[in-house]
Write a protein that binds this DNA or RNA. Structure first.
Length: 561
RNA sequence: UGGGCCGUCGUCAAGUGGUAAGACACAUGGUUUUGGUCCAUGUAUUCGGGGGUUCGAAUCCUCCCGGCCCAACCA
């Protein structure tokens, strides 16, 4: 009997398997996750992190964390820290292999000198504008720089002086001597070093020149003896250059493989757009629960497990795609369904008076903490004459399919009694202010000895025992699935109702001791977690992670359409 | 006639010449003290399109169509 597990398979793993068969990298598998510390990580990075660390794990290999810190004007130690936090939170460990591109600056400089000595690189003194002009266009070849044929001695001298800070920013660059007529624009004498007389967060004032991505990245991979250098598809054009540098220098040569980056509908993923939302205060910060950042998802209540599962389920390929947010929501529901304690919370309270219930009686009802996990046990929930139920669990003129409370109908209060609605009280605006019901003492616990059934079970909270809390309901950041399809700026597509704040929610008393980050299922509503920033013991704030699937809501929606 | 990459269900995605996996979404039934969970069933005669090779094609050839990337001293 074979138990066939659905194993993760994708084109990159196939390539690795092939290489292993031919002993391509001495049987090693060594990957790396190489973020630039210039922003916060988002779910797209999580895909790459899970890929790289996941492959290392599955092939008994290693995965390095490496900061690609070659551009001091964009980078900041704040990001270095946040990135490490997020990766750890996701559940991955680089052990002692935390590296920085800046660790290799000396070595890179030596390699640059080697290129110059071999006539493969030269110092160019064209201005930024001239370099652009000389590069040509996508359809026309470029022309060679006037400085392309300087002597090796002059190049060496100039490079040394660039390094020493003798020249202003932008006055000279070091360039690879390749081919100004190449059809691949990146091969038209790409820049290797540019002058940037700026302090670096790790090397301080030591350097006045910093290496460009194409030169630096392949060497970082080579120095760390990476076997498979996985990057996103937009670097496909860079691969010939990656290979060119490593061949020119005749050093260890990792294999670059490109894959498609993640796009998710109803949200934005680019660093630029996220930065815009943060800077222009459309959201409260990088960890706003509406954002697809790792820290935003964490604050929203997502678990690392769910994000890892999501990364596995979306698969991996080279074609550009737009993954349905519903899949992400599915993975968090799946995880939380197994683990989250159930609890009763009334978000939009409607007072219910049980006329035939004794005035001062309080009963402690037994409630199951998690029907999916018997070991979670039970708890006591106080019940009394005045309770709150959800406003939308009552309708005066109910349609056929509505089987919650309506005048004359009997429903079950979860873990308590059957109650029957006798009449509703309205205020001058026509809004219901309270319901008068009667209960059947024989139905304690929620079942009738005579075997009669009810169609609905409602959650509730005892008025005098309840605690008050603020609850923030989140929905999609954008009101359209793909802002790229709309003919407008993505900010015009922001969902104006992406956050709804309810200030007067009533929770069962046990929740008073809940801790920041703690997750619950509010029965019949969704999964919620205690906000890690704004929640205080005396004024609790909950974030809705995701709603429960809701058949009734679906029916209503269908009718309205 | 710049170059490179990519088109398989509504959305992802396996498949590498032997007759279309799986997941999400959707639909229908069953169980249920959450209109939740769970269970069962249904959903691509067809792989962007046309030709061709072959006993046999999503897989090979060819032409066409569509999408993405490249002209930062960003990564």
């Amino acid at each position: 009997m074979e138990s066939k597990k659905t194993e993760t398979t994708n084109f990159i793993r196939n390539i690795i398997d092939e290489g292993l068969k031919t002993n391509k990298h001495e049987g090693r598998v060594h990957t790396r996750f190489p973020p630039e510390p210039n922003g916060y990580l988002h779910i797209g990075h999580a895909k790459s992190i899970c890929l790289n660390f996941g492959i290392a794990r599955d092939y008994n290999g290693l995965c390095n964390l490496r900061f690609d810190d070659t551009n001091p004007i964009k980078e900041d130690p704040e990001f270095v820290q946040s990135i490490q936090n997020d990766i750890k939170w996701l559940g991955f460990d680089w052990e002692d292999r935390l590296y920085h591109a800046s660790d290799y600056f000396d070595q890179m400089y030596e390699y640059a000198i080697q290129l110059v000595k071999e006539g493969k690189a030269y110092v160019c003194s064209l201005s930024e504008k001239e370099i652009r002009e000389y590069r040509g266009t996508v359809k026309e070849p470029g022309k060679e720089s006037l400085y392309r044929n300087r002597s090796i001695e002059e190049n060496l001298d100039l490079l040394e002086r660039m390094k020493n800070g003798e020249f202003e920013d932008g006055t000279h660059t070091l360039r690879a001597k390749i081919d100004m007529a190449a059809s691949n624009m990146l091969m038209r004498d790409p820049l290797i070093y540019r002058i940037r007389r700026k302090r670096h967060h790790r090397t301080g004032g030591k350097w006045n020149i910093y290496p460009m991505y194409d030169f630096a990245h392949c060497l970082e991979d080579s120095i760390e003896r990476i076997t498979h250098s996985l990057c996103s598809i937009e670097f496909e054009n860079n691969r010939p250059l990656y290979d060119w540098f490593l061949n020119a220098l005749d050093v260890y040569h990792p294999q670059q493989i490109e894959f498609a980056r993640l796009n998710l509908n109803y949200t934005v993923m680019s660093k630029r757009k996220l930065l815009e939302l943060v800077n222009e205060s459309f959201v409260s910060g990088w960890d706003d629960p509406r954002l697809p950042t790792i820290c935003g998802l964490k604050r929203r209540g997502y678990t690392p497990e769910a994000i890892r599962t999501f990364s596995d389920r979306i698969g991996l390929a080279k074609r550009q795609s737009l993954v349905d947010m519903a899949l992400l929501e599915h993975t968090i529901r799946e995880d939380l369904n197994k683990s989250a304690p159930r609890v009763m919370a009334v978000l939009r309270p409607l007072k219910v008076i049980i006329d035939n219930y004794p005035e001062d009686l309080v009963e402690e009802m037994d409630a199951v903490n998690n029907p999916e996990d018997a070991s979670a046990g039970t708890r006591k929930v106080p019940f009394s004459k005045i309770i709150y139920i959800e406003k939308n669990d009552f309708m005066e003129d109910a349609p056929k399919k509505f089987y919650r409370l309506t005048p004359g109908r009997e429903v079950r209060l979860r873990y308590a009694y059957f109650i029957k609605c006798e009449y509703a009280v309205k205020d001058d605006n026509g809004d219901f202010t309270e319901l008068h019901c009667t209960y059947d003492p024989e139905t304690k616990g929620g079942s009738a000895p005579d075997g009669r059934k009810v169609k609905a079970t409602l959650h509730w909270v005892s008025a005098k025992h309840s605690i008050k809390a603020e609850v923030r309901l989140y929905s999609h950041l954008l009101s359209v699935p793909d802002p790229g399809l709309e003919n407008k700026d993505f900010k015009e597509c922001l969902n104006p109702n992406s956050m709804q704040v309810l200030k007067d929610c009533k929770l069962e008393p046990g929740l008073a001791n809940s801790k920041p980050g703690e997750r619950f299922q509010f029965e019949r509503q969704g999964y919620f977690c205690v906000d890690s920033k704004d929640s205080k013991h005396e004024s609790l704030v909950f974030n809705r992670t995701v709603t429960l699937r809701d058949e009734w809501a679906r029916l209503q929606k269908k009718k309205n359409i």
